[in-house]
Design a protein around this nucleic acid. Sequence first.
DNA 1: CCGGCACGGTTGAGCGCCCAACTATTGCGG
DNA 2: CCGCAATAGTTGGGCGCTCAACCGTGCCGG
Lengths: 168, 168
Amino acid sequence: MSQLRWLDDEEQRTWRTFLMAVHLLDAALDRQLRHDSGMPHAYYQILVMLSEAPGRELTMTRLARLLRSSPSRLSHAAARLEAEGMIRRFKRPGDRRTTLVEITDQGMKTLREAAAGHVREVRRLVFDVLTREQVEQLHGISESMLGALDPQGEEPRYVDPEGTGNQS
Amino acid sequence: MSQLRWLDDEEQRTWRTFLMAVHLLDAALDRQLRHDSGMPHAYYQILVMLSEAPGRELTMTRLARLLRSSPSRLSHAAARLEAEGMIRRFKRPGDRRTTLVEITDQGMKTLREAAAGHVREVRRLVFDVLTREQVEQLHGISESMLGALDPQGEEPRYVDPEGTGNQS
DNA sequence: CCGGCACGGTTGAGCGCCCAACTATTGCGG
DNA sequence: CCGCAATAGTTGGGCGCTCAACCGTGCCGG
């Protein structure tokens, strides 16, 4: 019987505007990447994670956790990326359970080529239209939401930086 | 050969955090609505728009524009919603081109029932964790992004309020 | 040492969305 | 008043995601 509070006017306006912006942003990024690099945004993110991982490799489970992806989703995605030669899956001898994924040179090349256009789009749609202050605000807001969205957020959201990449 | 600027550290952190939050939020809302009301978030939004429209009806094209949806997407969605009795499509005599969509009583009922749980979730994941100031900031940020995302934003984002509803 | 449970990962069905192609209707310029 | 472009809407194929079911492996307690 928890008390239900509706959204007040300001919340309502904010919510609809936010939803619309996010919807359009997502569509725009996906469209640009698919069009220019033949890859959905989610796949791009997989390559980014792998490119930053030590040794350019991770286990399937660890990669899934980093991306907050279901094992299933990653498995499907990996099948496609592997068929395209972007990544390679293999077992380490002595462990017949774990599967390791590694981004190939071809994958790195594709990623680098895709990154330019992608970053340009992100800049155009987001950072070019926000003030420095708004960027900081957005950061804070996103972190707050993550607190509720990702309660077991013990899991890191990206691997400890040591690579030189910067693709999103 | 436009100059390509990468994201600096603060932008990068903001971007990843934001992307993650949005990804998880979207998934959470969709899951909640599907689970509790058997309806994806996008379909819920269709019902909301219709419920607020004068006479509870709109043309397909106008509805698609309000939602920034492709005609195709809406058409598919309408087929399903109609089959479930949530909406009704019909032609107005004298115009054989335009199709009108109307939300049925059953649709209104379903929407009202879905709204409670949905709003609770939105509150839990967003407004409960943001300060009043952050809500205002988020509004401003979203509007700024929409400027870039929705350039021909002549099109309104929701029908002129006159209904009494408040479902998201 | 062995039974069962947790872990790592994959598979397939169902579904929503995108894109491209298509039909039908309407309106407008000449 | 005719031809053609613009408008309104639908359809189908391809694909990515979700969910549930599933298999093999490793490990831990009794």
